[in-house]
């Protein structure tokens, strides 16, 4: 009879790595998404070009390849990252590229009439963005951000390829050591599902908070 408590502990250690990757990767993705999404709407051609290049490049190449570059190629340029740093960077940049398009779409959805009201009230572009456009655009972004965060969570499994012991990696280890396939894989299935559910739940809560009073009514 196998003593499962030790093996489950191993998987839980991996789960903690997965949680860390998801949280830090998502945080980076949000920052990058806003920077690149707003960059694509910039008045300045160079900023738009830079943002567009980033978005197209990271959407157009595989997360595996991006991860290998960050972890194995960057050291040749003198930048050596720990596996966790490399994982966060690759995941954040990858998902951030998708998020950037979400930011851009939501900002553009706040119509001309609101922008014109801002001009008539003599707000600067920054003030209009900060006080009028973004607060209304945020509720539009959140559902898709939630999707992206779940995608990122599931994408974290790729980091096992750069020797990071995430949840999927640990399950493989447990399977190899115990010979049991069902229990480790059923455990991580459940854990992934619970994590994704927590993200969904959290995003719905956030959505309700930021859209309070808006009620989707056009004014």
């Amino acid at each position: 009879m196998i003593d499962w408590s030790g093996y489950i502990g191993l998987i839980l250690q991996g789960a903690w790595v997965t949680v860390q990757l998801t949280l830090m990767g998502s945080a980076l993705a949000v920052v990058v998404a806003f920077a690149a999404g707003l960059g694509r709407l910039s008045r300045f051609m160079a900023v738009r070009a830079l943002a567009t290049t980033y978005i197209e490049f990271f959407r157009g190449t595989s997360i595996f390849v991006q991860l290998f570059w960050v972890y194995f190629v960057l050291p040749f340029a003198g930048i050596t990252l720990t596996p966790l740093q490399a994982g966060v960077l690759a995941l954040g940049l990858n998902v951030g590229a998708y998020g950037a398009e979400v930011v851009r779409g939501a900002v553009k959805a706040i119509g001309r009439e609101q922008r014109e009201a801002c001009i008539a009230l003599n707000l600067t572009r920054f003030q209009a963005m900060r006080h009028i456009v973004l607060p209304q655009a945020l509720p539009l972004m959140l559902p898709t951000f939630g999707n992206n965060a779940i995608e990122l969570l599931k994408g974290t499994a790729v980091v096992s390829l750069i020797s990071l012991s995430d949840m999927t990696f640990q399950a493989q280890v447990v399977r190899a050591q115990t010979g049991s396939t069902l229990i480790p894989f059923a455990t991580i299935l459940l854990l992934y599902f619970v994590m994704a559910w927590l993200i969904s739940f959290g995003m719905r809560w956030l959505e309700r908070r930021v859209s309070r009073g808006l009620d989707g009514v056009r004014v």
């Binding site: 009201a117 707000l123 004014v219």
Partner: peptide, 26 residues
Amino acid sequence: GMVFQHFNLFPHKCVLDNVTLAPMLT
């Protein structure tokens, strides 16, 4: 100052905040 055909109020701000926003910011 301008008043628009479709009002263009800020839907995420209460009436008072709609009126105070610009004087405070500008």
